[in-house]
Each structure stands twice: as structure tokens, then as C-alpha cells.
Amino acid sequence: MILQVRNISRSFGGLKAVQDVSLSVREGSISALIGPNGAGKTTLFAILSGFIKPDGGSVLFKGKDITGMPPHRICRLGMTRTFQLVQPFAAQTVRENIAVGAHLGIASRKAALAKAEEVARQVGLEEQLHKPAIDLTIAGRKRLELARAIATEPRLLLLDEVLAGLNPQEINEMLPVIRGIRDAGVTVLMIEHVMQAVMSLSEHARVLNNGSLIAEGAPVDIASNPLVIEAYLGHGTAERLRKAMEAAGAA
């Protein structure tokens, strides 16, 4: 297990954003964290990556206790995240943006810029290298977010809704990119609302609701878990899940 999360809790004032969450992530896997808006998914990612300190519990990465460590040290150990609300270095070019990630392991400016071009190709941004990040479309910015993170050469990548806001075609273009990252040896834990993506990418999914984990297992089982569907995701989602399953089955 590359990541072990034990009894993590965190409140904001009276709001229990994350309650007693435990989970583990198997090395080399793509797994998903799903749940309705406000469930606490982003907060959990922020705790894992060191941006928010938990009130209790511990996080073990590669067997090492990293609870309360600052983000840059966790990144240096090999775990990094992307942001749901993309946070580019707006004034800088795509190439410069990615190079910041590449500099984690590369001191030379020239080598980091070269590495940035290589990573850009990996995520399909090679045509936009010289554009300022602010001129990218939403889909482009999501790719950039991904590219910068990959450039740090993480062992574990936390993706916070990298498919949100993309149209179906853009999503279909992103799926092989994410699979490619995993095939290159990076473990991926993703927060995702796009069920079709969860179905087709991940072997394992967990459901968070009101800060607590309520179900865990193969995506198909979770999708058909009536408890999850009816009690926590609502009728609309139940319908979406069934459709996604049919689509995945047909493929």
C-alpha cells in the first residue's frame, strides 16, 4: 500500500468536513473517490497533501508518517495534487508553468525546459508551449494542471476533478492520458464526478458523504449499491450511473 489513511478527521467550526476516514491505496492502481458536492473530498485531498492539518488521525505515505508535513516536503517525497479550481501561473507560458514542476528534480533551467516539452507532449499540450497559461481554454488549463504535477515525477498523484468542465470529446481525449500516467508507473487517486470515467479508469472506488466513507469496492458494485444510490447520491445520479454502466458494458 503506497498510501494509508487512518482515522482522519477535520472540522471547520461546527462543520465536520471529514470524519474518521480510513482508506488505503494500492501501488500502481487507479482508484476513485466519489461523492456529492460538499462531501469533503477536496478537504481530504488537502489534508493528504499537507495543505490542511487534520484534527486527528494519521497519513502514511510509503510507510512514512507524513501527517502535518508542509506540502512542498510531501511533494518532494513523491506525492502531489492538482487543484479542482485550476491555479496556473497565469502570466507565464505553458512551458514555463510545466518547468516549475520539472525543477523539483532538475536544477538546470535548460534541462527543466526540455523536460517540460516532453511532458507537454505526454498530455497533448505541445502545440501550446509558448502560450501564456491565461490564454488556454478550460480543457487546456486542466491539462496544464496535470502536466505540472506529472513533471515533478510523483509516485502518487491526487487528481481533483480534472475532467470537470470538459465536453464529452475532451473527456475521451483525457482518459488515455490518465491511463498513460498510470502505465508509466504513477499511482493515481482521483476525485471524479464523471461516472463514465470512473467506470472505465478505476478498479476501486470509495464513496464519501457528509465527511464519512459510506461504501467502497469495485465501481460496478458501488454503482449498483442501492444504499449508495438512493440514500446518498440521489435519483438523478442513479440514472447517470446506470447509463454509464450500460455504456461501459457495451464498450
Binding site: 502531489t80 525543477h103 536544477a107 515533478t152
Partner: peptide, 26 residues
């Protein structure tokens, strides 16, 4: 303008959160 330190400094200027997520000791 041409070093890793400079890249880090400008990254911190443009977005501290992103910079620290990418391993920069802000």
C-alpha cells in the same frame, strides 16, 4: 531570470498554493 531559483520565485509570485504543491519551499 535564468535559474531554478528564479523559476521558483516567479512561481511563488504568481500562485503560492500551486508553487508549494509542486515542491517549492515558499
Amino acid at each position: 531570470r535564468h535559474s531554478r531559483f528564479g523559476a521558483w520565485l516567479q512561481a511563488v509570485r504568481d500562485n503560492e498554493e500551486s508553487a508549494s504543491a509542486l515542491g517549492v519551499d515558499v
